[in-house]
Simulated assay, not measured.
Amino acid sequence: MTIPTPSDPAAVAVELERMRGTMAEGFATVNGSLALLAQRTDQTDRRLEDHEQRLDALERARWPLPSLAALVGVVSLALALWQMSQN
């Protein structure tokens, strides 16, 4: 398979310029897409960090609930026993 030789060198230059424009346009599109992906990654990282902070705050605020429930149960038992002993 042989590559045909062009008869006009100006046609080759025009075709190369057209290919260069197409390549530049393609690279610009790829660069734009990469910039968009980088921006979305940054936003996702910020949202993930925000969610982690909120989850940590919820976990810290939740720990006294079981202790409080046990304390209320013990106080209720003590009051019930005290009331039974009064009768």
Rank of each mutant, 00 (worst) to 15 (best):
L79N: 08
S76A: 13
V30S: 06
E59V: 09
R47I: 12
T2Y: 08
E49H: 09
I3C: 12
T44K: 15
P6C: 05
G32K: 09
A78E: 04
P9W: 05
E59G: 05
R54V: 15
A24D: 04
L34E: 14
V14D: 15
L16P: 00
E59A: 01
D45S: 14
L77V: 04
R20Q: 00
A10R: 11
V72L: 09
Q39Y: 05
I3T: 15
L16V: 04
S7I: 07
N31E: 08
R46P: 03
E17V: 00
A70F: 03
A61K: 13
M84V: 04
E15F: 12
R20D: 06
L58W: 06
L71R: 09
S7F: 10
S7K: 12
P64F: 04
F27Q: 14
S33Q: 12
M84R: 07
I3S: 14
L79S: 10
A57L: 15
A38Q: 14
V30F: 01
T44Y: 15
P64W: 03
M1Y: 08
L37S: 02
R60M: 12
R18W: 12
A61T: 08
L68H: 11
W82M: 07
I3Q: 14
L68P: 01
M1H: 05
P9K: 03
V30W: 06
L37I: 11
L36W: 14
W63K: 13
T41A: 06
A13W: 06
R46M: 11
L58R: 04
G32I: 04
R62F: 12
L48G: 04
T41H: 08
M23S: 05
L37N: 11
W82H: 00
A78N: 06
A57I: 15
M84D: 01
S7N: 12
A61P: 00
L58M: 06
R20Y: 05
A80R: 01
L81I: 07
P64A: 00
R60H: 12
S33R: 10
G32A: 07
R62W: 13
P6Y: 11
V75T: 01
A28M: 02
L79C: 09
M23R: 04
P9T: 06
S33G: 10
I3H: 13
L65A: 07
V74W: 05
Q53E: 07
P9M: 02
G21R: 13
E52S: 13
L81Q: 04
R54Y: 14
P66Y: 00
F27K: 10
L81R: 02
E15Q: 12
A11L: 05
R47T: 13
V14Q: 15
A24N: 00
T2Q: 12
V75M: 02
T22P: 02
M84Q: 10
W63G: 07
P66C: 00
L71P: 03
R47C: 07
Q53L: 07
E25N: 04
L55D: 04
R54L: 15
L55M: 01
M1F: 02
L36R: 13
H51G: 02
E25G: 00
L81M: 03
S67L: 09
S67R: 06
Q53R: 07
G32P: 01
E59H: 08
A13Y: 05
Q53Y: 11
R18K: 14
T22D: 15
V12I: 10
A35G: 10
L79Y: 11
Q43Y: 13
V14S: 15
L55P: 06
